[in-house]
């Protein structure tokens, strides 16, 4: 698996956040929810919006936002 946007991850896949390419406020919101570089995410449900598990918590986010999060193999 190469680096790809979080929005294209398949259900059940686990990956690591490689970079955030979103505006400043969204980046702060994403980080506050645990989506920051180096952290592991598990995709619970693909689609728009999608559900991920980060740091043991379940987070719902829009595919547009997830498109700005690049992930790489864990």
């Amino acid at each position: 698996m190469a680096a790809m946007p979080l929005s294209q991850l398949a259900s059940g896949a686990v990956a690591r956040v490689a970079s955030l390419r979103v505006d400043k406020d969204d980046a702060t919101r994403l980080r506050a929810m645990g989506l920051c570089v180096g952290r592991q995410v598990e995709l619970l449900r693909a689609g728009d919006p999608l559900i991920v598990r980060i740091s043991g918590a379940r987070i719902g986010l829009s595919a547009r936002l997830a498109g700005g999060v690049t992930v790489e193999p864990a």
Partner: peptide, 9 residues
């Protein structure tokens, strides 16, 4: 604002 929210247990 794009959706970003915790879905609690």
């Amino acid at each position: 604002e794009p959706l970003l929210l915790e879905l609690p247990n």
